[in-house]
């Protein structure tokens, strides 16, 4: 096996989805070209599956996203955090590749065709790389709190900000459990991943998914992606990756339209380990307010006991 193949597991003989003769699933799901109409029945919910185990940290997704969406460049200082000089998701970074360096053997490399290359002379070292993005939540807190209706859910089930309506109130910024949304300086509005709404409407896949050379980022109907992800997870576990787990694929916990296959705890990648739909707790949010409002009324009335002096 040449180094080249090892580095690009999505190419040629080292297809990570075709280990030991298993049949490789379609990695590029087909969407009927030219479908533009709003049709919840015909249009399945679309999303991202980010398989971090084959990410090689090339940041092609970051670049492609900026190019296509005209996101301002953010060439900044060196952070000193491995190869991550992007820092995190924000108004001007809609994809963010995280780099984690760990003292851990990469025995999986050969068995499961991981994306990260071995470091010579360092058998006990591994890199984790992961391309983060807006999760396009099933029950999106940002969308719930938006007071203008600027944030809306598209016919693909994704969550998008309408920039011609956003007035920069900032509520969604604090509502998002993943720190995705951010106010753009000098612009005043919030910006985030649109899951390339303009491309998907025309039947194209999002720019990041198209640019990803290893298919670490996959776009398609969510149920297909979930099935595929489960298959990949089984494969990894069989190969001995006891740490592998899916993040955001379980609708009963916290459903995400963009979910991930991780090799360590979510917080190691900067993700919350157990996010919540904070905005759906109507009773514990408004109940105490109703009690407090009644107490206020009672208090005001009580202040008049004892006359006006």
């Amino acid at each position: 096996m040449s180094d080249q193949q090892r580095i690009l597991p999505g190419s040629g003989t080292t297809d990570p989805y075709n280990i030991e003769g298993r049949e490789a699933p379609e990695t590029r799901p087909l969407i009927p070209l030219g479908q533009k109409s709003y049709d919840g029945d015909q249009q399945p919910r679309m999303g991202f599956f980010t398989d971090t185990t084959v990410c090689i940290g090339c940041k092609a997704c970051e670049v492609a996203c900026k190019e296509w969406n005209d996101v301002p460049d953010t060439i900044g200082e060196l952070t000193g955090n491995s190869y991550d000089n992007t820092g995190g998701l924000g108004a001007d970074n809609w994809r963010h590749v995280a780099f984690i360096e760990q003292r851990k053997p990469i025995y999986l490399q050969e068995n499961a065709h991981l994306g990260t290359p071995a470091v010579e002379g360092e058998p006990d070292f591994r890199w984790l790389m992961s391309s983060d993005v807006c999760k396009h939540c099933t029950e999106a807190p940002c969308l719930d709190v938006c007071p203008t209706g600027s944030l809306f859910r598209t016919e693909f089930g994704t969550v998008v900000v309408q920039e011609d309506i956003c007035n920069g109130c900032g509520y969604c910024v604090s509502a998002c459990p993943f720190g995705v949304l951010e106010q753009r300086e000098r612009d005043g509005r919030v910006w985030k991943c649109t899951l390339c709404y303009d491309r998907t409407k025309d039947g194209l896949e999002p720019a990041c998914a198209q640019a990803c050379p290893t298919d670490s980022i996959q776009y398609g109907p969510l149920d297909e992606l979930r099935e595929k992800a489960n298959g990949r997870l089984d494969m990894l576990v069989e190969a001995g990756a006891s740490d592998a787990r899916l993040y955001g694929a379980n609708e009963e916990e916290y459903g995400m339209g963009a979910f991930f296959l991780l090799l360590d705890d979510p917080e190691v990648y900067g993700l919350p380990p157990d996010p919540e739909v904070v905005t759906r707790k109507f009773r514990s949010l408004w109940g105490p307010a109703a009690v407090a409002a009644s107490a206020l009324a009672a208090g005001v009335a009580a202040a008049f006991i004892g006359g006006n002096r």
């Binding site: 209706g149 956003c166 900032g170 106010q183 905005t279």
Partner: peptide, 21 residues
């Protein structure tokens, strides 16, 4: 406090019970 104060009226075009704001 708005990022785009001149667009405050966008809040007066909708009523969303899910948004305390």
């Amino acid at each position: 406090d708005l990022g785009r104060p001149e667009r405050f009226y966008e809040m007066l075009r909708v009523f969303k019970p899910t948004s305390p704001m």
